[in-house]
Amino acid sequence: MKKDEVPQDKSNLETANFKELCYAVDENGEYTTVNSSGWDPKTIALNKAIEDINERVEVAKKRVLSNQTSPIEYYMELHKMDLPILASYVGLWKWRVKRHFKPRVFNKLSNNILQKYAETFDISLEQLKNIELHGN
């Protein structure tokens, strides 16, 4: 793509005052970098991904409030993590983290383990134990 053909479509990046760095060919046929404010197909895909994430967060929140899962699952979704990533951040095996999703197990966790989760999610212990305290 030539330097003057780099898309400059409206996107979420533009409203946040960000530009995406793209490679293009300049007048001399050499590769160079060009800032782009967005590209419609990429914006559509990004918006769909964000919608999916927000939906998973809402489902997890409802599951926590109906005592089907622990707040750990909600915060994992809210922070766009999956089980392997969360397990690596808290330094526990995946099966243990998954077990902590069970409300009866979560309610028996020590403050040391809960603190690991709270630090990972950058929240207080009180917010971890009660998602309604989270400013979301």
Rank of each mutant, 00 (worst) to 15 (best):
G91S: 09
F106T: 13
N107P: 13
C22P: 01
S36P: 07
Q68L: 12
S37G: 13
W93R: 15
M1C: 06
I131T: 10
P71K: 05
N107V: 08
A87M: 02
A87C: 00
N17W: 02
E126Y: 02
I53G: 01
Y117G: 08
T120M: 00
V105C: 07
M81T: 05
K61F: 09
G135W: 08
D52T: 04
Y31D: 15
C22N: 09
I123M: 04
I113A: 02
V57P: 01
K129Y: 09
F121I: 05
R99M: 10
I113S: 04
E55K: 15
Y117V: 04
V34T: 13
T33G: 03
F101V: 10
L13R: 10
I113F: 04
A87N: 06
I72G: 02
V64Y: 02
E55Q: 11
L133I: 11
L46W: 11
G38T: 06
S124H: 04
K94Q: 11
E20H: 11
L133Q: 12
G38L: 03
N130H: 01
V59E: 03
R104W: 15
K10E: 10
R56Q: 08
L133A: 07
G38I: 13
E55P: 00
Y117L: 05
N28S: 07
V59W: 05
F18P: 05
W93P: 03
L109F: 12
E5F: 00
G91C: 03
D122M: 11
T33S: 00
K80V: 03
I85M: 14
N47V: 08
R104L: 11
K10L: 13
V90T: 03
Y89N: 14
I44N: 01
R56T: 11
A49S: 13
G29H: 08
G29V: 00
E14R: 12
N111M: 14
K42R: 14
E58R: 11
V97N: 05
L109N: 08
V25P: 07
K19T: 13
L46F: 10
I131E: 07
A16Q: 15
I72V: 15
K98W: 12
E30M: 02
Y31N: 13
K98Q: 04
K116E: 14
M76V: 09
Y31L: 14
N47K: 15
I85W: 03
T120H: 08
V59G: 02
E58M: 05
K19W: 06
K98F: 00
T15R: 14
F121K: 04
N112G: 06
D9Y: 02
F101D: 01
K102V: 12
H100V: 04
K42S: 04
D82S: 15
N136T: 14
K10S: 03
F18L: 15
L128S: 07
V97K: 09
Q115D: 15
